[in-house]
Each structure stands twice: as structure tokens, then as C-alpha cells.
């Protein structure tokens, strides 16, 4: 780890200025991803601007029944918040199925969104990686990649986005709020992580130096009827192989609204919009769920080692939808 300077920002404007002054500066949230990568030499900031104690924490209920979650709110506080649990249960579950109690106690919402991929080659400085060193190549494509992407990848990078929280946010049409020295802005989560293409190093649509200030979850009738299921190599304390955030609102025996987002399968949380369209207005039957799950994976292009993710994702979508439908029936 290279030597670096450290500042604790007292105000948002201080943080923005401190980062703008130094091209090598980075914001420090809980540090659970950044410090890890600094120890590996993957990240080499010259200055850390600690934003964790900025007054950007807390969860507010918005007039539309949605929520505004401050960027420095810890993952634990998000998951424990009664309104999050009531209005967006899949979000609470997603957050709680990530990392461990200790990590969630310091990890922030902003940092969680910006955590880097868990592709092993990304963290191995001796191997080429387009995400770490643009243009150097991708060691994963010809290497070991059972847990890489099956959707939305490119010949330049096949890594997945590791966040569980972001999968639930994708399902709920969340919007990321940020601030730069030029003012405030918003990016919907659907555009927050751009397609990989030939720039796997460009991971977000945030302008340079932007500080994430909050995540806005629009209110909706479907969000309280949601679940998150995560499949992984061990029962806890492991990243997803495949995960599903889904919500289902059935009225008069017909699907009124449905949300499906997948984790562990793509470079970003993968919203399965066309699969949702299959179900909307249809009856919530096992056959319908099967068609919907098939549609969600219809564009999948598995790599040599990870074909199993396709049936796994399909099965998981069907299982979660069936579970939600059963709950709807008893409502």
C-alpha cells in the first residue's frame, strides 16, 4: 500500500473540494472494499477523503410512500429500518444476505454501490485485466470463470457486479443522487452501471469527483410484496452465484405488477424487463413463471465454465415467483 494523505470531511462541500484538488483522491466510506483493494495494490489513492461522518445518513419516508436512504447509512441500519423492512422487504433481505454482521455495520450505501468486482484476476496484479489496466486483456476469458457473467458481458470483460443491495435497488427503480462542485444530479439505477462494451474500467455513469448523497426508492404497491433469494457456495458469508430480487402484485387473479432483477449473472444488477412483460396481465401460474424465467435468460451466453448458472437462474426465478404467488393467495 502506497502512502496517502487522509482528510475527514466535515461538510459535503469540503469533501467535494478535497477530491477535486487531487486527481488521485478517493472517497472513503466504510473502507471495507477500498482498504481491502489498497492492501492488494489494486487501488492506489494518493488521498482519502473520509465521508462516513458526513450528515448523509438515515432513512426518510418520502411523500409518495417511497424512501430516501442517505449515502452514508450503514448497511445494517438500512436493513434494520422498520420502513425498509415494511415497504421494501427484498431490500432488507438483500442487504442482510451480503457480507457479515461486522462488515454491514460499517459498509455504507454509497460504498456498496461502488464496490468493485470479485473477479480473482482483477485483484491479481500479475495477470492482465481490462478493468484494472485498460487494454491489457482479460485473464478470465481463457482462464477459470465458473462464477462469471452469463448476460451482458463483452469480449473485453466477463466479470459480475458483486452487490446484493444493488439487485434489490434495480428491481425497485431506485435513483442515485449525487453532488459535484457543479451541483446536484440524479441517475436512475438502470443507467447507473453502463454496459461493459470495450470500457470495463468505466463502471458507473457518475461524473468525475461525484459524491453519492442518497438513494431514492420510489413508492409502489408492489414493493412490499417482495423477496430476495441468494444462492452461494456456502450458507452465509459468501458472494452470490445467482440471486433474485422479485416482487409480485396479484389482483383479481391477474398479475398487476411484477419486478425481477438478477444478481451474480452480469456486470451490473440485471433487471429482467422483458420477462416481467411476459407476466404482466397474465395469471400467476407455474407455466407462466416458467415462460417468464425462460425469457429472462433467453439472451444468456454462458462461458465454458458457467453454463450451470442459466438453469440455476431460471429455477430460482420460478421458485421465488411461486413463493410470492403463494403469499399473494393468502393475502
Amino acid at each position: 500500500m502506497r502512502e496517502f494523505a487522509y482528510r475527514r470531511a466535515a461538510r459535503v462541500s469540503d469533501a467535494l473540494t478535497a477530491v477535486a484538488e487531487d486527481a488521485g483522491a478517493r472517497y472513503l466510506g466504510g473502507g471495507t472494499n477500498l482498504v481491502d483493494l489498497m492492501k492488494r495494490g489494486v487501488e492506489e489513492p494518493t488521498r482519502l477523503v473520509d465521508v462516513r461522518r458526513l450528515p448523509l445518513d438515515g432513512v426518510q419516508v418520502a411523500p409518495d410512500g417511497g424512501l430516501v436512504v442517505g449515502a452514508t447509512t450503514t448497511n445494517s441500519d438500512v436493513a434494520a429500518h422498520p420502513e425498509v423492512r415494511r415497504r421494501f422487504p427484498a431490500l432488507a433481505l438483500a442487504v442482510l444476505s451480503g457480507a457479515s454482521g461486522q462488515l454491514r455495520n460499517v459498509a455504507t450505501v454509497g460504498g456498496n454501490l461502488l464496490q468493485r468486482t470479485r473477479c480473482g484476476y482483477f485483484a491479481d496484479l500479475s495477470r492482465p485485466c481490462n478493468k484494472r489496466v485498460p487494454g491489457s486483456g482479460c485473464a478470465a476469458i481463457g482462464g477459470v470463470h465458473p462464477n462469471h457473467a452469463v448476460l451482458g458481458h463483452s469480449e473485453h470483460c466477463v466479470a459480475t457486479h458483486p452487490s446484493d443491495m444493488a439487485v434489490a435497488l434495480a428491481a425497485f427503480d431506485a435513483v442515485v443522487r449525487y453532488q459535484t462542485l457543479d451541483g446536484a444530479g440524479e441517475i436512475p439505477l438502470s443507467r447507473f452501471y453502463p454496459p461493459v462494451g470495450d470500457r470495463p474500467d468505466r463502471e458507473t455513469a457518475l461524473p468525475p469527483g461525484a459524491l453519492i448523497t442518497a438513494v431514492v426508492l420510489p413508492g409502489s404497491a408492489v414493493s412490499p410484496r417482495s423477496r430476495y433469494r441468494k444462492v452461494r457456495e456456502r450458507a452465509s458469508y459468501a458472494f452470490a452465484i445467482v440471486s433474485v430480487a422479485a416482487a409480485l402484485d396479484v389482483r383479481d387473479g391477474v398479475v398487476h405488477d411484477v419486478r425481477i432483477a438478477l444478481g451474480g449473472v452480469a456486470s451490473r444488477p440485471w433487471r429482467a424487463g422483458s420477462a416481467e412483460a411476459v407476466l404482466r396481465g397474465a395469471r400467476p401460474t407455474a407455466d407462466g413463471f416458467r415462460t417468464c424465467a425462460d425469457e429472462a435468460l433467453s439472451d444468456a451466453k454462458p462461458l465454458p465454465d458457467n453454463g450451470y448458472k442459466v438453469p440455476l437462474a431460471r429455477n430460482l426465478i420460478r421458485a421465488v415467483l411461486a413463493e410470492l404467488a403463494a403469499t399473494e393467495e393468502n393475502r
Binding site: 480473482g120 500479475s126 477459470v144 456456502r234 452465509s236 459468501a238
Partner: peptide, 17 residues
């Protein structure tokens, strides 16, 4: 070389297992 040479890559059973 190992591609999973740490506790996040080489999983050993956790409490929940």
C-alpha cells in the same frame, strides 16, 4: 497459480453450514 487463494475464494464451512 491459485485463483481462489483466500478465505473469500476458498470457502471453509461457516457457522451457517
Amino acid at each position: 497459480r491459485l485463483v481462489n487463494g483466500d478465505f473469500a475464494g476458498y470457502h471453509i464451512a461457516s457457522h451457517a453450514d
